[in-house]
Design a protein around this nucleic acid. Structure first.
Lengths: 349, 349
DNA sequence: CAACGGTTTTGGAACGCTCCAATGAACTCG
DNA sequence: CGAGTTCATTGGAGCGTTCCAAAACCGTTG
């Protein structure tokens, strides 16, 4: 990078390998080698070519490289219209990490918005052929997701954010250990002296939700605490969560662990309705650490997913897969962390 | 698309123009024409070629097209690490709309995460040369932003989400009329009978913030209401907003319009601190319609930006600019809309 | 000094597409 | 019925890069 920022650069875009070659008095191939296999060149030639490249501000033309090497250095990422269990802001952080890490490895993220209605497969096909992305990152994987199988059949490298919840495990994935998160929440509450700890979850059948429920259950059992009649379910919506958790509160639980911040918020409402104060009368724990969680009063204790790490891992696994298609699949389960706020440690805010 | 989903497709990726040409008994050029200038072909030839394309599942190779036509059909989008005044979830919706609209026009969005620290310009250069994006969408434009001038100098088509707040206006942009939003908020409050309406803004100097303040001010003046001593400022943080708005509340204002939902939330806290209820004792209006706004109790009335429309407009302007570089710049100012919730119409939730 | 391994450099072709100019076919008209 | 005109199709070149195999160079060695 030793070029003064304002040195007049021969109009970018028109500098090709040939230009550099001519100027440096070598063949185009040698210039190519200088970039791709520098060890082939005699040190002094390399130095000279490099200087020329720098002087002219040469940049290889990606399309030409892609055409020749059949590798686009592009990673496709399908943004979905906010799947359940994955709040938008959450995905935003993930996307950032993804892009950043990919960048560092010389890859770029090509966005791909699946139209709201479609199952989405047809679109992937097009994306694949058209732009010949080198690999895919899937997110918002759900039970019965067909994308993994589809991609595998075509031999396209991919990594899922989210494990496969049913059927045969296909390909690599990175996921967050939801059970471990709710387990930790139980531990936290038990340490505070709670014993009647309820779980407010989504209707059974969603992989993510069942996993989170399981963590609660196993931790409760480990402590010899009852789970019977301590579980309610609701769709991810405040009003219905509020209604669903009511009976549990009335039955006298002292703490509620919710499968999402949204559900936890329903719980806040149910408590207020009963003139009870979250964190003081009843402890509440959410899941996701959505921006809202910090803004509530009292602040909502919640389980935070390590999204940056997930993004990094996705890229890492994808790169590995691309470099060695036949390797055994790798699956990474990351630990979430409990963020403690006032909803589980009563003070006055 | 009249192909049964499971018909054996000759392994994709290896089908080229030449393959199709041979199969259809025409020259490669004719196949190319069938796709790009169908009006040149005799209807029956066109039909035959099209059928063959379909049978073979042919897709043009983007890199080859790019190499030849010098147009990548790629739009660069620099995601920034959440600039002030633009909350992450908000940008998420925008990104969706952007991608969707671009898609429909045959373009794709290439993500580009500027590393947190950097001013970011160097990165753009690389992105531009390397992947030869056809155009750029800038977001999170700020006072003194250098990107517009930089891009203009290089003759790269671009559109900003966010007007230029200082200096010479450069290029096209799309923005939301913040002043109009706060103006509407005043109207709404006046209609409810409020007269002592305060504004809680950011420190002066940010274009976005000053614009929002201005809308409040002009509407107040139009109604002959005093603005003196009715304004406070704070950085975008709950605690400091809470502190900043205190004196206004103590001075007896009946309504507060905040420059962001975050500030509005600080206002909620300040009210609670005084044992007052938002929406009942004092009306509060936020800005952004962040997901949190709907989740609060009482629900926060707030000014919502038409992000989907902004995304669409960005693509539209960018396409126009790309097709005619010399055209006079177009600037679009979109109207936000006031979302009324219980913070301005006291009921019990 | 011719022959030889090894290193360094090169020429030519190819990737898949579209541009351009030219050819062939069909049709009009003097 | 040949020349002119239009319409439909084609051949060849070239976009910028990398692959491949062959060539040039070099210092050793028999």
């Amino acid at each position: 990078m030793p070029r003064s920022p304002n040195s007049p650069r021969p109009k970018a875009g028109s500098v090709t390998l040939a230009t550099v070659a001519q100027r440096a008095g070598v063949s185009p191939q040698t210039v190519s080698n200088a970039l791709n296999s520098p060890e082939l060149l005699r040190p002094e030639t390399l130095e000279r070519v490099r200087r020329t490249i720098d002087e002219l501000g040469y940049r290889p033309h990606r399309a030409a490289q892609t055409l020749r090497t059949r590798s686009s250095k592009l990673i496709g990422y399908g943004i979905r219209p906010t799947a359940p269990g994955t709040s938008a802001p959450v995905m935003d952080r993930f996307l950032h990490a993804l892009s950043q890490t990919a960048d560092e490895a010389g890859y770029r993220i090509l966005l791909f918005a699946s139209p709201p209605g479609s199952a989405g497969l047809d679109g992937y096909e097009e994306l694949l052929d058209l732009h010949s992305v080198d690999g895919f990152v899937l997110s918002g994987t759900e039970r019965g997701d067909q994308r993994q199988a589809w991609l595998e059949k075509r031999g396209v490298p991919f990594v899922g954010f989210g494990r496969m919840w049913s059927g045969r495990q296909i390909g690599d994935w990175v996921d967050v250990d939801g059970a471990s998160g709710t387990d930790a929440a139980v531990e936290h509450l038990v340490a505070l002296g709670h014993r009647r700890i309820a779980f407010l979850g989504w209707p059974r059948g969603s992989g993510v939700g069942d996993d989170r429920a399981m963590g609660w259950q196993r931790a409760m059992q480990r402590h010899g605490l009852p789970v019977r009649g301590k579980r309610a379910q609701s769709i991810d919506d405040i009003a219905s969560a509020q209604a669903a958790v009511g009976p549990l509160l009335d039955a006298g639980v002292t703490a509620v662990i919710a499968a999402s911040d949204m559900l936890a918020l329903g719980c806040y409402h149910a408590l207020r309705e009963r003139r009870a104060v979250p964190g003081k009368d009843v402890a509440v724990v959410g899941f996701d650490d959505s921006p809202t969680a910090a803004l509530l009063s009292p602040g909502l204790s919640t389980v935070a997913q390590p999204l940056e790490a997930v993004g990094r891992e996705c890229v890492r696994l994808l790169l590995a897969r691309m470099s060695e298609l036949g390797a055994p699949p790798e699956r990474v389960l990351l630990e979430p962390s409990l963020v403690v706020r006032n909803s589980t440690s009563a003070s006055d805010d």
